[in-house]
């Protein structure tokens, strides 16, 4: 759209200003993590130093410390392990459920669908107290299996919701044709619907994985020993010894844990939005 010359210049300046201010405000903490990760302690903890620049040579000390003196690698492994298992459980439970909800016509299917969506709104902070007792009763305290048991309770509802959208977009005739050609309904689902929905399934995989890495309350409640932590709890709690914060290592750990997730999330952003907009955007 065109505007008069001065208006255009004015808008351009406003645009650049808004973008700059927001980028700085939103990304600054991560920039700060980056800078802190490579600064020597003498530099970090000398108040007279300008904190925005390197007053002493950059160092890899914090990274070395993080990877050799802490359980950081172990936490990464724990998180990956829980992530992979939870993703598998989520797929096994959500795929058939989403498919049958997408194909279930009438009020009933719609109601179950809405019910499942609403359970996604139930926060961990509502359930962690009773669940901690359930976990204790099952003998799963301080075990990653506690998380594996509980996490699907929120990954499955949102995954069902996301997948339903994908399955609804697949024309019914396709499975009908497959069934006419001799497949059972389940066969048609496995051989036709799943291959077509790979991008939807990939979205769910990544979404579930990021939810697992971001969860804090359950991990804090169920896990206690240092070697059993997830990154979300291990870094902020066990990289602090008493009152001593290893800021360099802490910030490096935060950044290392965040970037891969951010990258994956960004790739699939549009699909996540579709899951959140509940039909208010068409």
């Amino acid at each position: 759209m065109q505007t008069s010359l001065s208006g255009r210049a004015f808008r351009r300046i406003g645009h650049v200003l808004v973008i700059t201010v927001f980028t700085v405000a939103l990304a600054f903490p991560f920039y700060w993590m980056l800078v802190t990760s490579f600064k020597q302690n003498v530099d970090l903890y000398t108040m007279a130093n300008n904190p925005f620049i390197f007053n002493a040579k950059p160092t890899l000390d914090h990274l070395t410390f993080l990877f050799t003196q802490t359980r950081f690698v172990r936490w990464l492994g724990n998180t990956t392990f829980v992530g992979v298992v939870v993703v598998s459980i989520t797929l096994v439970l959500a795929l058939p459920a989403a498919y049958s909800l997408a194909r279930l016509s009438g009020r009933w299917g719609e109601r179950v669908g809405i019910g499942i969506f609403l359970t996604y709104l139930v926060p961990p902070t509502l359930l962690f107290i009773p669940l901690s007792r359930v976990i204790a009763y099952l003998g799963l305290q301080d075990s990653l299996w506690a998380l594996i048991l509980v996490y699907p309770s929120f990954t499955v509802p949102f995954s069902i919701w996301l997948l339903m959208g994908f399955f609804k977009a697949i024309p019914r005739e396709l499975e009908d044709a497959a069934m006419v050609d001799g497949l059972t309904r389940f066969g048609a689902f496995v051989k036709m619907v799943i291959p077509i929905s790979t991008s939807g399934i990939l979205t769910v995989v990544i979404f579930t994985f990021t939810l697992v890495t971001q969860e804090f309350v359950y991990a804090l409640t169920f896990l206690s020993s240092e070697e059993n932590q997830m990154i979300g709890t291990g870094i902020p709690i066990f990289l602090v010894r008493g009152d001593v914060y290893y800021w360099g290592a802490l910030m490096a750990a935060c950044l290392i844990a965040t970037l891969p997730i951010a990258f994956l999330y960004n790739l699939f952003l549009d699909r996540f939005i579709a899951g959140f907009t509940v039909g208010a955007v068409k």
Partner: peptide, 25 residues
């Protein structure tokens, strides 16, 4: 209408060059 900026050339309405006018003008 002024919704698209020309790559080159002029538009005149009522004898006046309107290239730099917004739609509402």
């Amino acid at each position: 209408a002024g919704l698209e900026a020309p790559t080159s050339g002029d538009i005149l309405i009522g004898g006046r060059v309107v290239n730099d006018l917004s739609p509402r003008e």
